[in-house]
Design a protein around this nucleic acid. Sequence first.
DNA 1: CCTATCCATTGACAAACATCAACTCAATAG
DNA 2: CTATTGAGTTGATGTTTGTCAATGGATAGG
Lengths: 117, 117
Amino acid sequence: MAVDLELVPKQKRPAGVRCCEPVVYPDIEREEAVRMASVAKALGDPVRLQLVDVLRKHAGKVCVCELVPLFDLSQPTVSHHLKVLREAGIVGSERAGLWAYYFVIPDALKELSAWLS
Amino acid sequence: MAVDLELVPKQKRPAGVRCCEPVVYPDIEREEAVRMASVAKALGDPVRLQLVDVLRKHAGKVCVCELVPLFDLSQPTVSHHLKVLREAGIVGSERAGLWAYYFVIPDALKELSAWLS
DNA sequence: CCTATCCATTGACAAACATCAACTCAATAG
DNA sequence: CTATTGAGTTGATGTTTGTCAATGGATAGG
């Protein structure tokens, strides 16, 4: 986080005395948190998480028409979830004739993954 | 995912012929996806992600009164975010007198972290 | 008691979200 | 050109979310 300050171990100290000094918030790393949270948010739906999982298991590109029947959802809804993933920078797409192929963008999950470890 | 089926490489094949065979969805690993998505969802907010980050950096327990001033938010809002994290199983809390201390639950992020790697 | 402090809960509200039906658009086969 | 197919967009709807002001509950000091 970069909130690198001493979080003083609390002690009994009530009555007329504020619990702790107000703590400065360095606002650094704020952008990183926003970035990682947006990725996590995109993964915060079982359908989208499974979509990413399928795409990752099949290292190549996967046609939308193969993804839709995996879920008990309408095609527009799946399309919407793919759009959310695309806007989060997690997947990319590519058209070939009538079909659209999706794939996971390498390193898209790297930052979040590193932070989680 | 466990959608372990052959995703046939697409070929030109339009006109009166459906794009692909409907694909069976094994529903296994469904629960895992739901579990991991709920954790990801809880992390899908910059404030909550930073809260977890602060708690992780300070391996011990951190008082709520130290967390609130880190954000430009009201105390009830921070309390709400902590509750979301608690319900997601990511953090735990403990009271001592007037104060409440929060801490990251070990291994709470393990499954998601492993999947992301 | 009475008061001050920390924290959680409630209620309210606007914004965002998940979903589907209906539609549009692009591409291809005939 | 026409019909068909895959996929993205729009509009509508019900649900969830983030936020705060106000309130409530517990604890400790005087």
